[in-house]
């Protein structure tokens, strides 16, 4: 059983993708075309990118529920900044704002001692409120005469949508950060045993703040990609998206128990969710079914994670080496 669970941890998400591919290729003759596959991958980037950030947070045994609000806040601010300071600076500023929300999250968690769940739950409402306040509840249309901004989300290089490159770039950065730097090991250390990490001299508070900033940063990136596609700053953008992000991270094999992140899994889980959406579109059902099915996938992923944690605990108690 333990072997099976270990194996599942590594390749579970691939099995799911293969199963989904078989089903989808039976459902639709168009599924196995390069164009379709690319668009599925491109749709999967949103959840995957924020999923990278969330994976770090879960590794540290924390959560961030404020990501969809940060996404909307970034969308609003980039739309406001573009006419004022031009595209490149607008992107930098709005990403800074996104990251600073993460900093506030981190400060509340570390300095006020409020638990991450409640903090980010409250921040979700607060940030959404601020996004609406900034623009008075309206949407901000972006005029993009030089077509600079829209390239980010709609352009292609060698026929592959830009956002896939952005995702891969962020994946590489997060991968190296989590698995090949002291910072990454520190995140795992805080996640597996916070007090031990504290005693061994890690600056736990700083690490936490940094991780919350990174999560918000990834949310900001997705906010910019999606805004460049719609060319509208939307304060109500992506409601409930946090569910998808958490699902992707947990389905990818990152355990709620903390200490271990699986970025590969997150990447592919993003694509898997996108495949589900594609399948639901084929069926022509209403949008509510999307949320419903993601919720079911989340419960399934939690179920598996729960079983895994329990068996690993039993194995540890029995002294089986893993």
């Amino acid at each position: 059983m333990i072997k099976f669970l270990k194996l599942y941890e590594k390749i579970g998400i691939f099995i799911l993708i293969v199963l989904a591919s078989v089903v989808l290729s039976i459902m639709s003759p168009h599924f196995l075309q390069v164009r379709t596959l690319l668009s599925i991958a491109a749709q999967g980037t949103y959840a995957a990118i924020i999923g990278f950030g969330m994976t770090l947070a879960l590794t540290m045994k924390a959560f961030d529920l404020s990501v969809d609000a940060v996404l909307a806040l970034t969308s609003v601010f980039v739309a406001i900044f573009i006419p004022m300071v031009g595209v490149p600076l607008a992107i930098v500023f709005s990403l800074l704002i996104a990251a600073s929300v993460g900093m506030v999250n981190g400060l509340i968690v570390t300095k006020l001692g409020v638990n991450p769940l409640i903090t980010t739950l409250a921040m979700m409402t607060i940030i959404r409120g601020i996004a609406l306040l900034v623009v008075g509840g309206r949407q901000v249309i972006i005029t993009d005469p030089d077509r600079v901004f829209r390239v980010i989300g709609t352009g292609r290089i060698f026929g592959i949508p830009n956002q896939i490159y952005i995702m891969l770039l962020l994946f590489a950065i997060f991968f190296i950060m989590l698995y090949h730097t002291p910072f990454g090991r520190h995140i795992s250390a805080v996640g597996s045993n916070e007090s031990a990490a504290r005693i061994s001299g890690l600056r736990v508070d700083l690490i936490k703040i940094a991780v919350f900033m990174l999560v918000s940063f990834t949310a900001g990136v997705v906010g910019i990609i999606r805004t460049s596609q719609s060319l509208i700053g939307i304060p109500t953008m992506a409601p409930d998206f946090v569910l998808v992000v958490l699902t992707v991270a947990i389905l990818g094999g990152t355990s709620l128990a903390g200490g271990k992140g699986n970025l590969w899994g997150t990447l592919f889980a993003g694509i898997f969710i996108s495949m589900i959406y594609y399948g639901l579109n084929l069926l022509g059902v209403q949008i509510f079914y999307q949320i419903f099915s993601v919720g079911l996938v989340l419960l399934f992923a939690l179920f598996v994670d729960g079983i895994r944690t329990r068996y690993l605990a039993i194995a540890k108690a029995k002294g089986i080496k893993m």
């Binding site: 569910l243 709620l256 919720g295 079911l296 989340l298």
Partner: peptide, 10 residues
Amino acid sequence: FITTLGMMFV
């Protein structure tokens, strides 16, 4: 919290 978060959407 995560169960009920999932249930919230379901």
